[in-house]
Amino acid sequence: MEFDLFLRYGPALLTGFGVTILCWLVGSFGGLVLGFVLACLYRYGPAPLRWVIYAYVEVIRGTPFMIQLFILYYGGPHFGLLLSPIQAGILSFIVYGSPYFSEIFRSGFNAVPHGQVEAARCVGLSEGRILRRIILPQMLVPITAPLTNFFIILTKETAILSVVTVPELLYETQTMAAETFTFVEPFLVLSLFYWLMVIGTSWVGAKAEARVTRHLRKA
């Protein structure tokens, strides 16, 4: 292994890692928020809106991320949406993740016993407050693990952004590989970076799970 390779390409790889993290974080949290909004609209909205959301969820889940990315990035200009690669990447990431998140939230809603909501109505709490104080904290218990899991899945989907020349980790790795005719070193580093992301996410997920299940521990 040649270490001066890393000296030369280290900064580029690190920047790539930074871009990966940026796209992943903004895209995932955007998807999370959009997914939550969709799940709420599905739960509280009128029937026609529910059909629209249902169709959205099925269509996005039934098509490859790469095609969604292409529609936004290459097709976008045709309906007046001119995006830089990173913008297109993040936006398509938000769109791509949202139906999965919304399904997770939907299952969370269903996991909260209805009796608790009724009890809250009986003492006169408003629906907004019930959502915030009773339903949300409770649904976090069953959904924290699947949320963590999906964040981990999304770490890997970021690699696809390299296809539209987002200068993320895989893109920089490929550049390095092509310029130096090496494979082992760059891809080893790349694996290490993804591994770090996965480990980090699992760690945060475990912490979050401990936090949201605090009240269930027997004293």
Partner: peptide, 11 residues
């Protein structure tokens, strides 16, 4: 499960 499929494919 830990490495992106695209990376596996390229490898």
């Amino acid at each position: 499960r830990g490495v992106p499929l695209l990376v596996q494919l390229l490898l």
